[in-house]
Design a binder for these strands. Structure first.
Length: 105
DNA sequence: CGGGTGACTTTAC
DNA sequence: CGTAAAGCCACCC
């Protein structure tokens, strides 16, 4: 019995994201075996946003936009966290070409 | 069981 | 990366 496999897998994957890197909902979804349901990733992250244990701020949409920043505790908290890790945030988004993390890495 | 919603993605134009 | 439409799945009423 794998419990809430999806939820659990997302948590594990979040903890595997290296500092100074970001990933997308689609990648997480696919890595958890539900690539068709990237929406669920954001939905689950919403449950983890209050838990500082998980780096929810390192998850962006496919264009690198901070789609979840509005759902964070502070309005600019997500960007501040990313910048504190060395990630440059411009126009409310990051450069996936430079910061995107691939689980295979 | 059905309808609405959401931190998304893909395809088409 | 513009808009529009469809797919997707958990959760709530």
């Amino acid at each position: 019995m794998s419990e809430n496999s999806f939820n659990e897998k997302v948590k594990e994957l979040l903890l595997e994201i290296p500092i100074g890197r970001v990933t997308t909902y689609g990648i997480i979804a696919e890595k958890c075996g539900m690539k068709s349901s990237a929406r669920m990733v954001g939905y689950i992250l919403n449950s983890l946003k209050n838990q500082t244990k998980y780096p929810c701020h390192r998850v962006v949409n496919r264009f690198g936009e901070l789609s979840g920043k509005n759902h964070f505790q502070g309005e600019e908290l997500m960007q501040e966290l990313l910048e504190s890790e060395g990630i440059e945030v411009t126009d409310n988004k990051v450069k996936l070409s430079n910061y995107l993390w691939n689980p295979l890495d």
